[in-house]
Nucleic acid binder design. Structure first.
Lengths: 316, 316
DNA sequence: ATAGATGCAAACCCTTTGCACATTA
DNA sequence: TAATGTGCAAAGGGTTTGCATCTAT
């Protein structure tokens, strides 16, 4: 697991020279969780000890942004805020206009739609900003604002695991039913095999989830950070519904393909976004497994279509 | 159809008093299409004729924002821009970092997801900002940037009609097939009736679309402004697929219900967002028609479930 | 020795404000 | 005439910059 200073060293641009003050500013900045305004960082530095000029702090913030250590964000307050990117992937914001607190989230579904829109317009998207302004739960209730919880790596992993588990569960149900209802021997075998694999994955995932909770029992109480309806709530479920009155093998394979493709994409996307870490490995590992299923299903689909064709004409 | 000055009069706050300079600024501002920075408006006013102080222009911009005539937008440039809301509903932005042009779009799908996230966090959302930064098509090709086309009311209507037509087409296909395959006499009748209605709507919609194009032949060449996958690409299509191997009446009704609900919501949402206009009426009219279908389907579904129950136990 | 980092204060940009004056209901 | 709107110039905030001074390589 990468440390904060490794993270910085990795991004330190060539040709610059080291400076104690800059290092100190960076270090203080990386210790913070929220979205700091430049001024707040100045104050922090002042309380920590050092006499560092405002200009240097501004210059260092700029330096961090260029190096990819920090991101400049704009909540429409008339000044910029900065958040570091150490174990902290890009995300969207819910911004409470009452307490000025900001809450972070990610939605794979929204990101996918953003991609679609950009593609439709032939626009090369590099970065998206989504901010939802309104009133947070605590402020609506008149309570003290919750202390903002930055999405730590384990929170990120928690949500990914939840999604993975939901996906596997609904995949398992789908393949099990499909296997039971398929008449074709070969198709049945494929579905059985997939059901078995989903079951195995599910076990692994659940074990990891328990581990994660054991390491931090507070973890369950945080609100959802990572949203993904994709395979679990969507296609597998719809597919399973469709199975109630008998199944067409071709259809069932198609449903499987769609779902596996969706979840592969999901895990790949977030795996890639992670900093080097245990979590990243979990994501990519599952992305690979989904890809194997996907390939299997596609092979099987092609073979089925072939066989139907050779059996002559309108096998559908 | 409401004129620009009616639009302003409607929103003029009580208790204020009229002023020629303010009226002039507002008028110039409303003639613009893009996103003006305060400074650009100052220049515009200067070239138009008048000697109006910078302060007054700032004050008038603020006045317009408070009155709901203008919206303040922030593209992270370190200054605000302003766009008027006359026949110009809220929207999202694609912002080209190369030519600094911004392109507008709306996605009902994204808005729905934003709502879901906010609900999940018990966050009372009032306003959402979505900005996609990157490089626009022209800049990628090294061409001159396209002149930005503000989504006029007719562009908005064009896309709404396209979506409506796609929805009706896929609804028509679905209900036609469903009617052909349904064994139950009563169910068949319902599906036939719905198919007939969809066909009728489809005719109306297509006529309106032709009218719109006749009024402005350029209209077809503009890129999509309003995105909605909803019913057309999603549920009806999936439903129709599912029908290939025979149909369960209950299922078919459910698919219909989902789709009609989705498109009702879509038309309602954008109908409400429109300024008072012909377009608004089209939207709301169709929202109502979808709602009638929805009600019909729900009644039918309930009756079917009743009948199945009384026929005893596991009718599924 | 020299490119790069820092400090200080001034400059900058965009926006808001205080106050005297002009206007409108 | 009393409440609003306008102009001017100054102040405000957040941020950047010029320039002399340090300091790492």
């Amino acid at each position: 697991m990468q440390s904060a200073s490794e993270f910085v060293e990795q991004r330190r641009p060539a040709g610059g020279r080291r400076s104690g003050k800059r290092d100190f500013i960076v270090q203080v900045f990386l210790r913070q969780e929220g979205h700091l305004a430049a001024d707040e960082l100045v104050d922090l530095i002042r309380t920590e000890d050092a006499r560092i000029s405002r200009a240097t702090i501004y210059r260092t913030l700029q330096w961090m942004v260029e190096a990819g250590i920090a991101r400049k964000v704009d909540f429409g307050e008339g000044r910029y805020r900065f958040e570091h990117s150490y174990r902290h992937p890009r995300h969207f914001h819910l911004i409470c206009k009452t307490c000025n607190q900001s809450y972070e989230f990610l939605s794979s579904d929204i990101e996918a739609l953003i991609e679609e829109v950009a593609d439709a317009r032939h626009f090369a998207a590099r970065q998206s900003v989504l901010q939802i302004y309104g009133t947070c739960e605590s402020c609506q209730a008149g309570r003290q604002p919750d202390r903002a919880t930055a999405p730590t790596e384990s929170l990120f992993a928690r949500d990914a695991l939840r999604i993975a588990i939901a996906t596997e569960r609904s995949g398992l149900e789908f393949y099990t039913r499909a296997a039971a209802l398929t008449k074709d021997a070969r198709g049945r075998k494929v579905f059985k095999r997939l059901a078995a694999e989903e079951k195995k994955h599910l076990g692994t995932l659940e074990a990891r989830y328990r581990e994660l909770l054991a390491a931090d029992p507070e973890l369950e109480s945080h609100p959802t950070f990572l949203f993904f309806k994709g395979a679990a709530n969507g296609l597998f479920a719809a597919g399973t519904e469709a199975l109630r009155d008998g199944v067409d093998d071709r259809q069932a394979l198609l449903v499987g393909i769609k779902c596996e493709r969706g979840s592969h994409k999901f895990f790949k996307r977030y795996g890639d976004r992670f900093e080097e870490s245990e979590g990243k490995r979990i994501f990519l590992e599952f992305a690979d497994e989904e890809r194997e299923h996907l390939d299997l299903l596609i092979r099987e689909y092609k073979s089925l279509v072939e066989r139907q064709k050779s059996r002559g004409g309108t096998a559908r």
